[in-house]
Design a protein around this nucleic acid. Structure first.
Length: 655
DNA sequence: TCAATCCGTATC
DNA sequence: ATACGGATTGAC
């Protein structure tokens, strides 16, 4: 029943009119009269008898005979709803795209896929149809060879087994080709696969790699960005069993694939993997639930490693795939941290004056050998820079001339290049002491850098316009995190300038996220042996910097997880948040029969007259906590409490 | 004693 | 949500 009310989160029985006896199969959409209203619903199963005591109504109408909802997806959605203290209807809305009648009528006959706009498999450009896959096991394994356990993983997939792996990719890795090889191996065992990436650019890349691996027509790419018709067409192709492989953004995490053999996710730390609609499931968790239910293989990959992935390794649920140290050293760019040298720290002026010059020299050296330079800057609007409130002259760092920026409200402005706080600022032009926030994005940074390197072309890649690749020639490439173009032959230098803003974020994952972004950018640099340099403006003693330097995401993740265990943070424990106006939050919590051992933290203000309570429990109590919260939401919705509360299990933002 | 109203509960 | 039943309250 497609009603979002928590207390109606259960199936209802209806009689099926004889005219629909054949067509109202499980998985079809129907309209039913429910409490006087006509509402949408799903046929979950057909049974001979109902256990319902009262009189049954007939279902009103069969919307379509297409059984879009696969039984295994119902089971998955139920598990996801339970985990996230949500309702089945909410999850099904995420799992099944809106119907598009015209697309449905294109029918099962013929090659509905190949016909035009559906962006089925031909991943742009001439595809190397078919033949590539014939390259066989050896070629597919080659790229996995630097990882001692890689070839065995692929072999297990080919053998029809279900290995589970957490994979830490090498710098410069062609990750899409590696995932495609895993998908290919799975397909060769006669099974299907679902792979999820964070954004459209990653999807394009994976799409091309899978097309090269499987040939055309064996997979679909599914993302919300496709628009309703194409999305439904791709969905139907999977549901009708026409293609064994679905790749996509998080919209694909529920894709119906029969005989599923592998679920894969790339860069599971990217916050785009978190679904913003209730009940806010995370793509990694959904895929892991699928793997558990259907006993499939798992590939959780990234340059960096999340605490959650580390937990999979430490509990023995998954094995890690990591390259050997020799290969890592050979492939990793040389990382130069510039930050707190204890010697120089006593003389801030002397130290600061040198900081940007190291970065500039690295850039100049790269440009000198006609190599591109990548400059990673914060997202537009994410980090407001500041200027003089009186004369609007951009505020600059007194010691290194870098731009000042505000990390968060009420924070002291600090230099974006050297991180030094500017407590007592005085405008060099008018002497004003007051500052105002101004938005400086990638474009502005690009201008500044362009002046610093006259002659070098400057290109930007950000939200407005994302470049997927740049040629192997001298250029400054200014990109926001996640939009870094791949450079043909690798970048000569990568400058990571926004570290202060990243590291001081009031977020549990601040340093994990910093390392993730750094590694994503640094992975695009040439190996150190061929001159690749990464300049990171941060204290070399920081664990995240050390991990970057040694390209050791596993070490960092283990450390991070140990720390979170000690502090009682996720994923070592399970957290849930309850947000709403104070009365509503209090109401829900008094109604909730919280299991023993649940700790209540807060409340903290959550804006707009709202507050947020955090609930913490041991992982063993997670199921019970979710159940209690959902039940309490049910009690409230039953007595039509009008002030809503938002319940989030594993809230994406913590502190 | 009846009818209007409130509250809680079920909705196949 | 919305409809219904039983309890409650208020007026004749």
């Amino acid at each position: 029943m497609d009603v979002p009310l928590a207390h109606l989160d259960r199936p209802f029985d209806y009689l099926v009119p004889t005219e629909y006896d054949e067509t109202a199969r499980p998985g079809t959409r129907v309209k039913v009269r429910f409490s006087g209203q006509l509402v949408d619903g799903w046929v979950l199963e057909r049974v001979a008898e109902s256990a319902h005591g009262g009189r049954l109504a007939y279902l009103q109408r069969l919307v379509s005979p297409e059984p879009v909802l696969a039984p295994e997806i119902v089971r998955l959605a139920r598990a996801v709803a339970d985990r996230y203290a949500g309702g089945l209807a909410d999850v099904l809305r995420l799992a099944v795209p809106p119907r598009h009648a015209k697309v449905e009528k294109e029918g099962d006959a013929g090659d509905a896929l190949g016909t035009g706009d559906g962006r089925p498999t031909a991943a742009g450009g001439p595809d190397t149809a078919g033949g590539t896959a014939a390259g066989g096991p050896d070629t597919a394994d080659d790229g996995w060879r630097p990882y001692p356990t890689g070839p065995a993983f692929l072999q297990a997939l080919r053998d029809g087994r279900s290995p589970r792996a957490v994979w830490s990719a090498l710098a410069g890795e062609d990750w899409a080709a590696r995932i495609a090889a895993a998908i290919g191996a799975t397909a060769r065992s006669g099974r299907g696969a679902v792979a999820v990436v964070a954004d459209a650019r990653d999807l394009d890349r994976l799409d091309a790699a899978v097309t090269a691996e499987l040939g055309a027509g064996r997979h679909v790419a599914l993302s919300a960005a496709l628009g309703p018709a194409k999305r439904y067409r791709a969905f139907l192709a999977a549901r009708r069993g026409r293609v064994p492989v679905v790749i996509g953004t998080r919209a694909a995490m529920f894709a119906p694939v029969s005989r599923l053999g592998l679920v894969a996710i790339w860069d599971d730390g990217d916050d785009l993997h978190g679904e913003p609609r209730a009940p806010y499931p995370h793509a990694r968790e959904v895929l892991l639930t699928r793997a558990q239910q259907a006993d499939t293989a798992v590939l959780v990959g990234g340059y960096a490693r999340t605490g959650e992935a580390q937990l999979l390794v430490e509990t023995g649920w998954a094995r890690e795939i990591v390259a050997d140290r020799v290969t890592i050293r050979a492939r990793t760019p040389r990382v130069v941290p510039i930050g707190d040298d204890p010697q120089l720290a006593r003389d801030p002026a002397a130290e600061s004056a040198r900081l940007p010059s190291i970065a500039w020299e690295a850039a100049r050296a790269a440009l000198g050998v006609d190599a591109p330079v990548l400059v990673q800057v914060p997202r537009r609007g994410y980090l407001p820079s500041v200027s003089c409130a009186t004369c609007r002259t951009p505020a600059r760092c007194a010691t290194c001339q870098g731009p000042l920026a505000l990390g968060s409200a009420r924070a002291v402005p600090a230099c974006r290049w050297c991180g030094r706080p500017a407590a007592a600022y005085a405008c060099p032009v008018c002497g004003g002491r007051r500052l105002r926030a101004a938005v400086t994005g990638a474009r502005r940074t690009a201008e500044e850098l362009g002046r610093a390197f006259p002659g070098a072309p400057v290109r930007t890649s950000g939200r407005d316009e994302v470049l997927s690749a740049v040629p192997a020639q001298a250029a400054l490439v200014v990109a926001t995190p996640g939009a870094e173009p791949v450079a043909d032959g690798g970048y000569g230098a990568v400058l990571l300038l926004d570290t202060w803003a990243l590291l001081t974020r009031a977020d549990l994952r601040a340093s994990e996220e910093a390392l993730r972004r750094w590694m994503a950018a640094a992975a695009l640099a040439r190996p150190g042996e061929t001159g690749g340099r990464v300049v990171v403006v941060a204290d070399g003693g920081l664990a995240a910097v050390q991990a970057l330097l040694r390209w050791d995401a596993a070490w960092f993740a283990a450390r991070e997880l140990a720390e979170r265990r000690a502090l009682g943070f996720p994923p070592a424990v399970r957290m849930a948040s309850v947000t709403g106006v104070p009365a509503a939050v209090a109401d829900l919590l008094t109604e909730a029969r919280l299991p023993a051992g649940v700790e209540q933290l807060g409340p903290v203000p959550a804006g707009e007259g709202q507050e947020r309570m955090l609930l913490r429990t041991a992982r063993s109590g997670a199921v019970e906590l979710a159940r209690a919260l959902h039940a309490a939401a049910g009690v409230r919705s039953a007595r039509k409490a009008n002030q809503p509360v938002r319940i989030q299990v594993d809230p994406h933002e913590l502190f």
